[in-house]
Design a protein around this nucleic acid. Structure first.
Length: 856
RNA sequence: GCCGAUGUGGCGAAAUGGUAGACGCAACGGACUUAAAAUCCGUUGGGCUGUAACAGGCCCGUGCCGGUUCGAGUCCGGCCAUCGGCACCA
């Protein structure tokens, strides 16, 4: 025996052995319709993991948590007779590889290749049943050719508000198609990070600093590509309803999109030189509370509002200009700082409240945002916290128009109540008042019902090297799409990946590459990392197709089914709850509208895994030094123990700490399974135990076996993998130390365990096959066992006797005992008699097979 | 501030409104062993009581307070704590 600690079972030999067999025989390859080996009689099941960004650090134990869960489901579904699509790939564009290139001069493609190889080796070691023939990489020109192609579809479409669908731009009848394209260019204030030399999306900025690196971020206007996701706001909210996602995630998306119903109301601006007359200008405000219109005592415009220039008086101009400049210098963060006092400046102009016909002052203030609603609000200080604060600070009048129905002060009351001081709607509830006043406004041409969304259009360009180039060229200051025949647009090789520092992307350094023709220059921005992950699940259906982004038949098959979403199961972390899932849904809907794909939604069922903490209960991080590497765990305990522990820790969705001791416990369980079937001979070699015999299981063994089949089946269906493993432990404990082990029970058990611990099961199954010839192929060819309810039932059950709900005794009763019999048995029980002596039995509750509760 | 999730032994956790703590870890005791490791068997929420000892008995206990119910970890109302998201969105 070597000095190294002896392995409880030879996982270090059997795991590589079976992984090699699976690979050689391509056991987990799922053929497409029309391909060799495709079985059209089977239903499909598409199980998707969120594919990783292959970082240099390799996997940590958080990655394989969801991957293990999906692998269990994939292996289970195959035994249930499904064609299972279970692919893996790499989301490999992104900033870390580029920053590494800046430091080392090594091309990002090289680093990416190395990192992918590392990730892949690590994943393979865990024994996941991916169809590696479908592996994809977002940085592969054969892949991003189609990312660029999809961008072209988006660019060449517009959202028709009549049909509420994307349509080819050729169907647009207006004069300026560029103004309605789903991909458009605009000069917008962006988050410019001087340190990274790039613009960042809002979501990449945390507390005024870059998410990557933590560098300061400032606002600066730049020309950017933007995708018109807001056109889909309504559908992105409404079509969540039919998806099987956690309600919390749906809510997160709904809140992010932020739908508000209300009204737009026009306030005529009074004449500037003649305040009694009309200037001809109208100010449109958006409000969710049109019922408070009578309480509107002032208007506030966003400082950047275009009408400010027209209406401001000579006298107020210097103050207004000064305020606007001050606002412009503020970062998004400073502007949004809630703790600061309200600021603002009077424009000198007045508007007419269309309900009261009173003249009210027009102010500008930075708490009103240009990007939301109309960029102007009606100040109703009595019933809006912000307006009240503003009115108090600047001494503006406060008029109560909603009476609370409970005993709270009316000033500052923002809830629903009864309308007062509002002639048209007095005494109505807020809901009724909203309807009536909106109808009245519409009737008089003063306003209309309106819906607004918080969602902003998607800033889609990045000043980076390591991303998809846009298939766009510029000529005479105008953009133009390349023909799809010119795809892929491959980025040029560069010696120097450094940001230019001017905001111009690194691609601008490739002087030859950017010169597309004599008159045309290439777009030098690249797409954000989200682009590749927006549609990768579609490519998995048909990853080698050179004619189309996904073959029509393959798409219809794998994305098919009766529900709106095509992927049957999608597992990943909550960190993508909003952005990735929203962006994907948006692209998917565009492609659906254009008739490119068959389903309106990408992901039918979504499950989030919880994060795994270090042994110290802290988030895993390099600085804390508490990162657990799967390789180390597998070296010590094997891949099967690793997989089982990942699932045994607790509910999948929950956050939970890692424990090496816990891994040992699960490893012991697998070793017990091993020794149930195997014994070590004199020479120290493992061989099949003589205890395994082809005999009928006892009644007790039948019972625990069928209880295990039932529990494991139900638990896999409900994603309760931890309790499935518990039940299998109970089964093994029940069979430990018995003299003969029935072969049939063992075979059934191995099929149950296989999705969780496929290597050890494959080996044991092979050992059984070698001795007992009656069977039927490899473990991967078996079908899932059914269970028999009748075998679960006992003749006798323990029945609890309670007095006033408190446990007092337990008795054995035949399972068939009637309520009357149970009642009689309980009341005649000696302990119970002693306790209820001298008391009146007022009621007896009997739950057959469970309990009797005597109320005295 | 608003929205959401979570709160159960020393620890990870189980419990269709019906025996709280399954299963696992740790700890302790025992068997095997020259010994240790491994393995196997057993004990293990807290308090009180009880016996020579074993047994037995009683009370308390699922973040806190209240409610519904014959019966609440589970349902309802109100708090507290932790985590996550949003945050002047009119």
């Amino acid at each position: 025996m070597s000095s190294e600690r002896r392995k409880p079972y030879p996982f270090d030999q059997i795991e590589p052995k079976w992984q090699a067999i699976w690979e050689k025989q391509q056991v987990f390859h799922a053929p497409n319709p029309g391909e060799k080996g495709f079985n059209a009689a089977k239903p499909k099941f598409f199980i998707l993991d969120m594919f990783p960004y292959p970082s240099g650090a390799g996997l940590h134990v958080g990655h394989p948590e969801g991957y293990t869960a999906t692998d269990i489901v994939a292996r289970y579904k195959r035994t249930r007779g499904f064609n299972v699509l279970h692919p893996m790939g790499w989301d490999a564009f992104g900033l870390p590889a580029e920053q590494y290139a800046v430091k080392s001069g090594q091309h990002p493609a090289v680093t990416t290749r190395e990192n992918v190889a590392k990730f892949k080796r690590q994943l393979k070691r865990i024994g996941f049943s991916y169809d590696w023939q479908r592996e994809i990489n977002t940085t592969d020109p054969k892949y991003y050719k189609w990312t660029q192609w999809i961008f072209l579809q988006i660019y060449n479409s517009w959202f028709n508000p009549e049909t509420k669908r994307a349509e080819p731009i050729s169907t647009y009848r207006g004069t300026d198609p560029d103004s309605v394209r789903l991909a458009y260019v605009a000069e917008v204030p962006v988050n410019w990070c001087p340190e990274l030399g790039t613009v960042l999306a809002n979501e990449e900025v945390v507390d005024g600093k870059s998410e990557v690196g933590g560098f300061p971020v400032v606002r600066r206007p730049m020309r950017q590509w933007i995708l018109r996701i807001t056109a889909y706001a309504e559908r992105l909210i409404d079509e969540l309803d039919e998806l099987d996602w956690p309600e919390g995630i749906k809510l997160l998306q709904r809140n992010w999109i932020g739908r508000s119903e209300g009204a737009e109301i026009d306030f005529p601006v009074a004449g500037i030189d003649d305040p009694g007359g009309q200037s001809g200008y109208k100010l449109r405000v958006f409000t969710t509370r049109p019922d408070t219109l009578y309480g509107g005592t002032f208007l506030v415009l966003a400082p950047e509002h275009p009408l400010v220039d027209r209406i401001v008086t000579e006298e107020q101009w210097p103050a207004v200009r000064e305020y606007r400049e001050r606002t412009a210098r503020k970062s998004e963060l400073e502007r949004a700082d809630l703790s600061k006092e309200k600021t603002g400046v009077f424009t000198g102009a007045y508007a007419i409240n269309p309900a009261t016909n009173q003249k009210i002052p027009i102010w500008i203030a930075d708490y009103v945002l240009l990007g939301y609603g109309t960029g102007a609000i009606g100040g109703v200080p009595a019933h809006d916290d912000r307006d009240l604060e503003f009115a108090k600070k600047f001494g503006l009048p406060v008029v109560i128009v909603v009476q609370p129905t409970t005993d709270v002060p009316a000033i500052g009351f923002t809830g629903e109540g009864i309308a007062v001081n509002s002639p048209i709607i007095n005494d109505l509830t807020s809901a009724e008042a909203k309807k009536k006043i909106t109808a009245w406004l519409e009737e008089h041409g003063l306003g209309k019902r309106a819906i607004n969304y918080k969602l902003r259009d998607w800033l889609f360009s990045r000043q980076r090297y390591w991303g998809e180039p846009f298939p766009i060229v510029w000529e005479d200051g105008k953009h133009r799409a390349l023909d799809e025949k010119e795809l892929p647009v491959v980025p040029p090789a560069l010696d120097d990946y450094k940001p230019t520092g001017t905001g111009e992307p690194p691609l601008a350094k490739a002087k030859e590459w950017i010169r597309y023709s004599v008159n045309a220059l290439r777009e030098t921005n690249t797409m954000p990392q989200w682009a590749g992950s927006c549609w990768y699940y579609l490519r998995f259906c048909d990853p080698r197709n050179d004619e189309r982004f996904v073959g029509e038949e393959a798409e219809r098959y794998w994305m098919g089914g009766p529900k709106p979403g095509g992927v049957d199961l999608y597992v990943g972390g909550t960190e993508h709850a909003v952005l990735h899932l929203l962006y994907s849904r948006f692209w998917h809907k565009v492609l659906f509208d254009l008739g490119c794909i068959s389903k309106p939604e990408p992901f039918q069922r979504l499950v989030n895994q919880g994060i795994i903490l270090g042994e110290d209960n802290q988030k895993m991080s390099k600085s804390r030094g508490n990162i657990v590497n799967p390789d180390d765990v597998i070296d010590q305990h094997g891949a099967d123990a690793f997989r089982c522990y990942e699932m045994f820790m607790g509910p999948l969705e929950q956050m939970k700490p890692w424990s090496m001791r816990g891994v040992e416990g699960v490893a012991r369980f697998l070793a017990r399974v091993w020794r149930l079937l195997m014994t070590e001979n004199q020479a120290g070699k493992w061989e099949l135990s003589g205890r395994i015999k082809n005999i009928d299981p006892t009644k007790a063994q039948q019972k625990v076996l069928h209880a295990t089949i039932k529990k494991v089946t139900d638990d896999i269906e409900s994603f309760s993998f931890n309790t499935a493993i518990s039940q299998m432990m109970i089964f093994v404990n029940a069979l430990t130390n018995i003299e003969t082990i029935p072969l049939s029970a063992m075979r059934t058990f191995l099929i149950l365990l296989n999705p969780f611990a496929p290597h050890i099961v494959s080996e044991l199954w092979e050992q059984l096959n070698a001795k007992f010839v009656e069977v039927r192929g490899d473990i991967t060819q078996q079908t899932w066992p059914p269970y028999d309810e009748r075998l679960l039932a006992e003749d006798e059950v323990e029945v609890v006797i309670q007095i006033n709900g408190k446990l007092r005794d337990r008795i054995k009763m035949p399972i068939v005992a009637t309520e009357e019999e149970l009642k009689a048995a309980a009341l005649s029980n000696q302990k119970i008699q002693d306790r209820i002596a001298g008391k009146t039995v007022r009621n007896v509750i009997v739950v057959p097979r469970k309990l009797v509760n005597i109320v005295v």
